[in-house]
Design a protein around this nucleic acid. Structure first.
Lengths: 237, 237
DNA sequence: TTTCTGAATGAATAATCATTCAGTCAACGT
DNA sequence: ACGTTGACTGAATGATTATTCATTCAGAAA
């Protein structure tokens, strides 16, 4: 039996819907425990206790402990792939899309700060084949950002740069908010962090033509560089 | 007994020089093993075997396994604090110093790629008090970069930005070469990565006055953005 | 009701390892 | 020579924990 979520992880249990529900339940408990105590310090018994089931039950839904880690990490990456397209929905201006994507990425990272750190901590604890699945998923979510960049370049808003390399800088910028939160939280708020980041990246990338659009974009927004509230939402005005 | 390297780590052995030598020996073995297998999968017996000593001996030089990890991580951070000032020695132009510092940072990271990843993987496996020592050391090495930035701003070469925040972007840029090497190595060489990074950061930071200096700096260099060979080294011409 | 299926339990198993410690050895001072 | 000191060894100890499996149990089917 195989779920559509993670085809590589097999389960003893036949009821597809139940598998989904149980795994989500285990992963929720596991992400919390792995994030706070780390993978190796967390026992299957811990996860079972937090999920309110017996330790043996988990082995009906995964092959081994590493499978639980794999599912946990995939769930974190999935939340990126969920939230960013959602934030972009309906937006067409390439520059705006790019700024909103960065903004959204930083905000998911902020919401799942511990889980983001977990991904950096624990991906290497996976076997090579399982790690490969993570890499694929990571590249997919990077493509959400890369597409925005390519669009801006095609429209002459950003200068010609190595898209993939700049994508990594953007992605890392978002991740850093989680990875170095112990220090960054003393230097800035999340909003301030995003604002200075977008300021920095636009400075580095905008063409003269892009600058004109950027200024227009800022005017159509409420405050300086706040990309949270959407223009079609006049309540926030 | 206390060494000057890590005052918090105590040793049974009295001979100060011996303590230094043995610890260096253990740390060399440990960094290699931790990097390739991870902290928890590496046993004290593994480290002892690789270092060519008995497992019991290690406990004459550290309190527990976590101490070995602490010393290992501190040694990685120390290599940053060694190499960057060394690369900057003799240089006075603020802009040049800034570029050279970034260049040097990326190159240490490249040399100690696995160890850099180890720092991200394993810092959280330390107890809070030991982790605090790492944080202090990290801030110290960040200051090497921050000082260069402040200098450039004071001289009007860079615009006024939040120095600490930009420092983190620079530092993270260097670390990313190690963290995402599995992908980046397919996108660029180290030299290319550094070049595009410096290009990117200067675009974001330079003032008009700074631009004039930057162009002059590039001309005095051999190829475009190669900050490796020093001008006082005519052999490379 | 009785039977059957498969989900769920949790005690038992089998390893794995950090840490200790009784004992060896070599160097040195007397 | 001989006793002392301190580095060093490595087998033994004691915990911890992933994984298994004999059982229980609830509900569907007959």
């Amino acid at each position: 039996m195989v779920t559509n979520i993670a085809p590589e992880v097999t389960s003893q249990v036949t009821d597809e819907a139940l598998v989904q529900r149980r795994r989500a339940q285990f992963v929720a408990a596991a992400v919390e425990l792995f994030s706070s105590q780390g993978y190796y310090r967390t026992t299957i018994q811990d996860i079972a206790r937090k999920a309110g089931v017996s330790s043996g039950l988990i082995y009906q839904y995964v092959r081994d402990k590493e499978d639980v880690l794999l599912l946990s990490l995939l769930s974190v990456l999935d939340s990126y792939k969920q939230e960013i397209p959602q934030a972009l929905a309906g937006l067409t201006d390439p520059l705006e899309r790019c700024c909103v994507a960065i903004d959204a990425y930083c905000r998911v990272v902020d919401q799942r700060r511990e889980a983001t750190v977990l991904a950096y901590r624990s991906t290497k604890s996976l076997s090579a084949d399982r790690r490969a699945l993570i890499k694929v998923s990571e590249l997919e979510s990077n493509d959400l950002i890369a597409a925005c960049l390519r669009d801006c370049i095609a429209k002459g808003v950003f200068r010609e740069v190595n898209v993939e390399l700049v994508t990594y800088q953007l992605v890392t910028f978002a991740h850093t908010w989680a990875l170095k939160h112990w220090r960054l939280k003393e230097l800035s708020t999340l909003d301030g962090y995003i604002e200075q980041g977008i300021d920095f990246f636009t400075q580095a990338l905008l063409t003269p033509k892009g600058w004109r659009q950027y200024r227009k974009l800022l005017e159509s927004r409420h405050s300086k560089a706040d990309f949270r509230s959407r223009p079609e939402n006049p309540a926030a005005e």
